[in-house]
Simulated assay, not measured.
Amino acid sequence: MRQLVSAKMPDKRGIIRVFDKDCRYLQQVLRLKRGDILDVRIPNGSLVSMQAVGFTKKYVELKLVEGSSKSIERGISATLLQSKQLLSNDEDIASTKIGGCEYWLFQFMTRPQKMDVIIRQAVECGVAYIVPIKGEYSPVSAEKDRSVRWNRIVKEALQQSGSSVATQILEPQTLEQSLEVWRKKCCECSKDVYNTNKPDLTNNCYSFILHEDPEIQTSLFSKITVKPKKLALAVGCEGGIDAEELRKLTSFGFEKIHFNTNILRAETASLYGISVLQFLSMEFESWK
Results as ranks from 00 to 15, higher is better:
residue 196 T to H: 14
residue 178 S to Y: 06
residue 178 S to L: 04
residue 213 D to N: 15
residue 226 V to F: 03
residue 201 L to C: 01
residue 205 C to D: 04
residue 193 V to G: 00
residue 212 E to Y: 14
residue 211 H to M: 04
residue 224 I to G: 03
residue 213 D to A: 07
residue 231 L to V: 09
residue 194 Y to I: 11
residue 181 V to M: 04
residue 206 Y to M: 04
residue 182 W to F: 13
residue 220 L to H: 05
residue 206 Y to P: 01
residue 229 K to M: 08
residue 224 I to R: 01
residue 233 L to Y: 03
residue 190 S to P: 01
residue 227 K to W: 04
residue 229 K to P: 00
residue 226 V to I: 14
residue 232 A to K: 04
residue 183 R to F: 04
residue 190 S to C: 12
residue 208 F to E: 10
residue 211 H to Y: 14
residue 216 I to R: 09
residue 184 K to S: 14
residue 183 R to L: 10
residue 199 P to H: 03
residue 181 V to F: 09
residue 181 V to K: 15
residue 192 D to A: 07
residue 221 F to G: 00
residue 212 E to A: 13
residue 214 P to D: 12
residue 231 L to I: 15
residue 232 A to V: 10
residue 203 N to Y: 05
residue 210 L to W: 02
residue 194 Y to K: 00
residue 211 H to G: 01
residue 181 V to A: 07
residue 234 A to D: 03
residue 178 S to K: 06
residue 233 L to M: 10
residue 177 Q to E: 15
residue 186 C to L: 11
residue 226 V to A: 10
residue 192 D to R: 05
residue 221 F to A: 13
residue 225 T to S: 12
residue 209 I to P: 04
residue 193 V to I: 12
residue 193 V to T: 09
residue 185 K to N: 05
residue 191 K to H: 10
residue 203 N to V: 06
residue 185 K to A: 13
residue 181 V to N: 04
residue 212 E to T: 13
residue 179 L to S: 00
residue 196 T to P: 01
residue 204 N to A: 14
residue 216 I to V: 15
residue 177 Q to L: 05
residue 191 K to N: 12
residue 222 S to C: 00
residue 200 D to F: 11
residue 191 K to S: 14
residue 185 K to S: 09
residue 196 T to M: 08
residue 217 Q to I: 09
residue 199 P to C: 09
residue 229 K to Q: 12
residue 234 A to T: 04
residue 222 S to M: 03
residue 206 Y to G: 02
residue 225 T to R: 06
residue 183 R to Q: 14
residue 212 E to G: 03
residue 232 A to Y: 07
residue 233 L to V: 06
residue 199 P to R: 03
residue 210 L to I: 01
residue 177 Q to N: 12
residue 223 K to S: 11
residue 223 K to H: 09
residue 184 K to I: 14
residue 193 V to F: 11
residue 183 R to I: 04
residue 193 V to C: 05
residue 220 L to D: 07
residue 219 S to G: 04
residue 186 C to E: 02
residue 188 E to W: 01
residue 207 S to F: 08
residue 215 E to V: 06
residue 225 T to Q: 12
residue 188 E to V: 14
residue 222 S to P: 01
residue 199 P to K: 05
residue 210 L to F: 07
residue 217 Q to P: 00
residue 218 T to Y: 02
residue 179 L to N: 00
residue 185 K to V: 14
residue 219 S to F: 07
residue 182 W to P: 03
residue 198 K to T: 12
residue 184 K to C: 11
residue 196 T to D: 07
residue 179 L to I: 11
residue 191 K to E: 13
residue 213 D to K: 14
residue 226 V to W: 00
residue 231 L to R: 00
residue 204 N to Y: 06
residue 194 Y to A: 04
residue 207 S to R: 02
residue 178 S to P: 03
residue 180 E to L: 10
residue 211 H to Q: 09
residue 211 H to F: 10
